[in-house]
Amino acid sequence: MIEEKQTPEIRREKLRQEELKRNSSGYVKDAFNRDETGNLTDLVGSLGWKGTGILILIMIKGLIIAAIFLK
């Protein structure tokens, strides 16, 4: 009954935590691969909603500036 009230984000995080407990050596490999390729989900999750908003604003400003200079 408690699991039914959980949001999908909470369920995904619980599944990820359980997988880390079961396969900790695989996590090390994933961390090295994540460093090479990047992971938007982890970035946004660590920033929170304020940080994500600021990141989006910076990206939009960068696109506007690039459009002005490339015109």
Rank of each mutant, 00 (worst) to 15 (best):
E19N: 03
L70M: 10
E3Q: 13
R12L: 13
S24T: 08
E19H: 05
L70R: 14
I2V: 07
K29L: 01
P8D: 07
K5N: 13
R16F: 01
I2H: 13
S46C: 03
L55M: 10
L47M: 10
K5R: 15
E9N: 08
T37N: 04
S46T: 09
G38Q: 06
G62N: 12
R16P: 02
A66H: 10
L70D: 10
S46E: 09
K5Q: 14
R11W: 00
G62Y: 05
Q17W: 06
F69C: 04
G53H: 06
W49E: 14
I60K: 00
V44K: 06
L15I: 07
I64M: 11
D42I: 08
L70Y: 07
F32E: 08
N33Q: 11
S46A: 14
K71I: 14
M59Q: 10
I64Y: 12
N23G: 01
K29V: 07
R11Y: 03
E13P: 00
D35E: 10
V28R: 06
V28Y: 04
R12Q: 15
L63A: 14
L40P: 05
K5L: 15
L47S: 06
L70N: 13
T37P: 01
G26I: 01
K71M: 12
R22F: 02
A66D: 08
L40S: 09
S25V: 02
N33F: 07
N23W: 00
D42W: 07
N39R: 05
R34C: 03
I10H: 08
R22K: 10
K50D: 12
K61M: 15
N33C: 12
K29P: 01
S46I: 04
M59C: 10
L47F: 01
L57H: 03
I65R: 09
V28D: 06
I10T: 11
D35Y: 15
M1Y: 05
D35F: 12
K50P: 01
L20A: 13
Y27M: 01
K50W: 10
I64T: 04
I68L: 14
L43W: 03
M59S: 15
I56Y: 03
I2D: 15
E18I: 03
A67F: 08
F69A: 14
G48E: 04
N23Q: 01
E9I: 13
P8F: 11
K21M: 04
I60Q: 00
E36M: 11
R22P: 04
E18Q: 11
P8A: 09
W49D: 11
G38I: 00
I58D: 00
L43M: 12
L43D: 13
R12C: 06
Q17R: 14
M59P: 01
I68R: 12
I56H: 06
I2T: 11
G51V: 05
R22H: 05
A67P: 02
V28Q: 07
L47Q: 10
R12I: 07
M59N: 09
L20T: 02
R11T: 10
D30V: 04
K29R: 13
G45Y: 06
M1G: 09
I10S: 07
E9V: 10
Y27N: 06
A67L: 09
K71C: 15
K29Q: 04
G38S: 01
G26P: 00
S24F: 04
L47H: 02
K29M: 07
I60Y: 03
L43Y: 12
G48W: 00
F32V: 13
E4F: 08
I54R: 12
G38H: 05
R22T: 01
L43G: 02
S24Q: 10
